[in-house]
Amino acid sequence: MREHRQFHDGERAVQRRAGEEAIADHRIGLIHDSVIGGARPFIAAQFMVALGSVDPAGRVWASILFGKPGFAHTQDGSVIEIDIPASRRDVDDPLWGNIQANKPLGILFIELGSRRRYRVNGLVSRLDDERIWISVREAFPNCPKYIQRRHLRSLDAPDGISQSVTGSTLCGTVEDIVRSADTFFLASHHVADGADVSHRGGDRGFIHVVDKGTLRFPDYPGNSLYNTLGNLQVDPRAGICIPDFVNGRLLQLTGTASLEWDQIDPGDESGGTRRFVTFTVGGWILRDAMPKAAWEYGDSSPFNPPVVP
């Protein structure tokens, strides 16, 4: 265990305001400075990995990589290798340019079918034409709440070739993807602690389009560590990646996020926290980048609060 792991000022500020500082102190023991032995087979079994990175301009992006089980693996837990040959890297994904300019990388291994997830933050120590090496800074499990179960029945290997469009306005297909989402990944960054990426889920429609440049979603009760919100407390730059499971597209948005406290919530959309996050869009990329796959939707999380139109 990382004995010297301490919460930074942003995490502490959010924990304190939420009244969960003591709970966070109790759970800090979950955070290790390497991947624990029991989580290593889980990592090797995954075909989908979410990542958070920072571009040369300081903007934060969330991405998703796909591969056959075993494409991500770790031998001793101190270094994770992700095998993605250059021929299968989508040049339209900001990730590849980002990790050449900035080494911090947040990783989330998630298995939608079992609602299991494991989070790793670290630094890119090496990148060549075959794989990425990430030196682990901290690693810890996350609870299964708010994950919608989906089972993968078949998966074609991604070929690195996709079509993409860019913009900054939430309209048309982009707006439809946002409104219909029940799953997305939220990336953030802290100047000392590096990049991070987390899962957010809810019933379809839990992300609200406020206007053509703004979306808003509730912040549900979680593990009380407040890694993501703590980062946003001190650096509002954030990235969102929404997978469109039906049409095989990935929507990546970059912008800034702010946490709203003590909101009026008569429909209990926040699950009792009365917290919401407002995301201001700086730009987006829409790519048909998900490999051909047959997804079977299982069910929504029983913990999902209601969605109010």
Rank of each mutant, 00 (worst) to 15 (best):
R2I: 10
G52I: 12
I84A: 12
L123T: 14
I242T: 05
Q163P: 04
T183C: 14
W133Y: 08
D244G: 07
I240G: 05
A39S: 15
D219H: 12
D196S: 00
A139F: 03
M290A: 06
S300D: 09
G122E: 03
A294N: 14
A72W: 02
S224K: 12
G67E: 10
S53R: 06
G10C: 04
A39Q: 14
G19Q: 05
H73F: 09
A24C: 07
P158R: 00
L127C: 03
S180R: 15
C241S: 05
R116Y: 01
Y226C: 08
D176I: 00
D219E: 13
N247E: 14
D211F: 03
Q252H: 08
L112F: 13
V197P: 01
V174T: 14
G194T: 12
L65W: 11
V307N: 03
Q263P: 00
M48N: 07
D211H: 08
E260I: 09
R16Y: 09
Q148K: 09
V49A: 00
V91E: 12
G255A: 06
P41N: 13
G271M: 03
D299M: 08
D25M: 06
W295H: 14
I207Q: 04
P243C: 00
V91K: 15
G267K: 07
F66L: 06
A293D: 10
L251H: 10
V136D: 04
I107V: 11
I147T: 00
G239E: 13
I110A: 10
R179P: 02
